[in-house]
Amino acid sequence: MIYRLGELFCGPGGIAWGALNADIGDDNYKIVHQWANDYDKDTCETYRYNICSDNPKSVYHKDIREFNLENLPEIDALAFGFPCNDYSVVGEQKGMDGVFGPLYSYGVKVLNIYNPIWFVAENVGGLRNANDGKAFTKIIDELKKAGTHGGYTVVPHLYKFEEYGIPQARHRIIIVGIRKDIDVAYHVPSPEPYADIDNTCRKAIEDPPIPTDAFNNELTKQSKTVIERLDHILPGQNAFTADLPDELKLNVHGAKISQIYKRLDPDKPAYTVTGSGGGGTHIYHWKESRALTNRERARLQTFPDTYKFIGSKESVRKQIGMAVPCKGAKIIFEAILKSFAGIEYPSIEPNINE
């Protein structure tokens, strides 16, 4: 079957790339783009350019709270990486009490209107602890009950993408749901087949070398002070663990975020690529005293070098940081397709109870 995919909070297309490139060796089981929505204009332009250049009007640039969900083209599948701002351990952790917390409900609305065969929902690991765990319980309960075909069987799991060959320590809760009236069961794919992949950040960034004419590869201008500070920071260290001269130390009281001016360890996966933040949060090269370029950051998110991000340098940085790693998404979509095709694959038990 060809599954027509709708997306809310689509971002620049990490999930979509994984879906459209999912291949189980049977052309009868594929995923195609149907429509997508995001509130950010640059993000929508990036998505249109890379995912659906032949059908740009299928991407709706609109705040979800003002977006008419009725009368969209029919879909067989839904993906929604609902905003994580209020669930992230880096944020204020307002959970359901924040502006972004309740936005998952629009995914539930789409399930109720279109009754897709299956869905994929994505959020940060902190979702489980928001509002003392009540937010996660509420979201799972509403997803289970959604639609008009008896609800969905849901399989939530905290995926540690570095275990799946992704060159980045990125931990995300992904919830796969399949309609209960359909006799198909999804199993969490095992990370074991990816155990021998070289997923060091050195490999991701340097092999093969980034083409000189690659998109989004301009260097960040570093101040003299930043360069001097980085010169004293060893691979894997940050501004607080390095032996810095007094004049280069940061005047920070309270919480000391470990990613501030943190150099990559070239022999390990990168630490988590983030979408925004002030000085010291850009991810720093292990050898050269500079921040990574957006293209290098995109490689850590497993976007192909041909993937063009549209917008200002800071806008592109945000888009890359908010995305789901392309190849990580592909693994999950291939597991879904194999489930429907009746193809067995190595699997593990979910690490989250419903």
Rank of each mutant, 00 (worst) to 15 (best):
A135M: 12
T137P: 01
T137V: 09
T137L: 11
K138D: 09
K138M: 11
I139A: 01
I139N: 03
I139C: 03
I140P: 00
D141N: 14
D141R: 13
D141Y: 11
E142M: 10
E142F: 02
L143P: 02
K144F: 01
K144R: 15
K144I: 04
K144G: 12
K145P: 00
K145I: 05
K145T: 12
A146G: 08
A146C: 10
A146L: 08
G147R: 06
G147W: 06
T148A: 11
T148Y: 02
T148S: 15
T148M: 07
H149E: 14
G150R: 13
G151C: 11
G151A: 09
Y152S: 05
T153C: 03
T153Q: 08
V154F: 03
V155F: 03
P156M: 04
L158M: 13
L158H: 06
Y159S: 01
K160L: 07
K160R: 14
K160F: 06
F161V: 02
E162N: 13
E162L: 02
E163K: 14
Y164H: 10
G165Q: 07
G165H: 05
I166H: 08
P167R: 08
P167Q: 09
Q168Y: 02
A169F: 14
A169I: 13
R170C: 02
R170S: 04
H171L: 12
H171S: 14
H171E: 15
H171V: 06
R172S: 00
I173L: 09
I173V: 15
I174M: 15
I174Y: 01
I174A: 01
I175K: 02
I175L: 11
I175V: 15
I178S: 05
R179P: 03
R179S: 15
R179L: 06
R179I: 06
R179N: 07
K180C: 10
K180Q: 14
D181S: 13
D181L: 12
D181R: 12
I182E: 06
I182P: 00
I182C: 00
D183K: 14
V184C: 12
V184Y: 05
V184K: 10
V184M: 08
A185S: 11
A185F: 07
Y186G: 02
Y186M: 05
Y186N: 04
H187A: 12
V188L: 07
P189C: 07
P189R: 05
P189Y: 05
S190E: 10
P191G: 09
P191C: 11
E192Q: 12
E192N: 10
P193F: 12
P193L: 12
Y194V: 04
Y194H: 10
D196A: 14
D196Y: 10
D196Q: 14
I197L: 12
I197W: 00
D198M: 07
D198Y: 06
N199T: 00
